[in-house]
């Protein structure tokens, strides 16, 4: 059952078209990724879903409700973590969570949430003395303190160090396991690959692809590359004759075989038949990065 339906969404700021034509649905209980280069319209799209902006065209339905007309109801049921949203310097962690909990009809227990997010030792620390990762975790906690059915998280791990990023990912998986549907806006491929059940790739205000991360990779860039150093000279034709192989070339003493499907099995079988050992064998599969570049013609950040 879809909990979010976006159909032909349009939003412009003056002459700038931020969102041109975006449609997707989000199913209950999934982690749905909104992926795209900077300025692609990701944030505007989720802001329309969150009811913070009025679309110029198209429809948005969240939990069967209209984000503008039924704003009061949806604010009780949807938690939002915005990009670059801070808190007053002197506000303490526990105070912030207790304050935000008090806005909701059925809030989570702030103390339990603080512990769950690993902020237990920081409960009396003022906001300004928190590290970047701690601020981010507090921000996630604020989005979850109302016990939402949907959590919208925008640029969750931007500016975090790799360890803090991995911790945050673990946290998001826990949240999903507790039954919350999550919409995750990101430009980190690794994050989308690790967390998302499905991903919409948005570029220049349009959805250019919508699939599972693995599905995206296989439709866009189905090729695999095998690199190895043969223990004895090898005739290229042995490899190019294989139906799975599309290309063979050499770099120094290395052979690089490109192919699709069961190419690894085919290549290793041929080598075994000719009693050639493949030293330093590596299989390189296309990643979401490659798919992203192919879809948008741009390199993702990092």
């Amino acid at each position: 059952m879809p909990v979010i339906e976006v159909t032909h969404l349009k939003k412009r700021y003056g002459d700038l078209v931020a969102v041109d034509d975006v449609s997707f649905t989000v199913e209950a209980g999934e982690i749905f990724g909104v992926l795209g280069p900077n300025g692609a319209g990701k944030t505007t799209t989720v802001e329309c879903v969150a009811g913070l902006r009025v679309p110029d065209g198209g429809g948005v339905s969240v939990l069967g409700l209209d984000p503008r007309r039924d704003a009061a109801q949806l604010r009780q049921r949807v938690g939002v973590q915005l990009q670059e949203s801070q808190l007053p310097d002197r506000l303490r962690v526990a105070e912030a969570l207790e304050l935000y909990a008090s806005f909701y009809r059925n809030p989570a227990d702030p103390a339990a949430l603080i512990d769950k997010l690993g902020l237990g030792e920081k409960r009396n620390t003022p906001y300004k003395n928190l590290s970047g990762g701690q601020k981010q975790r507090l921000s996630i906690a604020l989005a979850l303190v109302g016990n939402p059915e949907i959590a919208i998280l925008d640029e969750l791990t931007t500016g975090l160090d790799p360890q803090a990023r991995r911790d945050t990912w673990g946290l998001i998986e826990q949240v999903r396991d507790s039954g919350v549907t999550i919409v995750l806006v990101t430009h980190f491929m690794e994050e989308a690959e690790r967390l998302c059940d499905r991903v919409a790739v948005i570029d220049r205000g349009r959805v250019v692809a919508l699939d599972s991360p693995a599905g995206l990779v296989s439709t866009v860039a189905p090729e695999q590359r095998i690199r190895f150093r043969p223990s004895a000279p090898i005739d290229d034709r042995l490899l190019t004759d294989l139906p799975e192989v599309t290309d063979v070339h050499r770099t120094g003493s290395q052979v690089v075989v490109t192919g699709t499907g069961e190419v690894l099995h085919a290549v290793t079988s041929v080598l075994a038949r000719h009693q050639i050992v493949a030293a330093d064998l590596r299989l390189e599969q296309s990643t979401l990065d490659d798919a992203f570049v192919e879809l948008t013609g741009r390199r993702p950040a990092n």
Binding site: A50, L52, R75, V80, L82, S85, F103, Y104, G146
Partner: peptide
Amino acid sequence: VLRRLATTP
């Protein structure tokens, strides 16, 4: 701060 508040009830 105001924006974040706007996402809550």
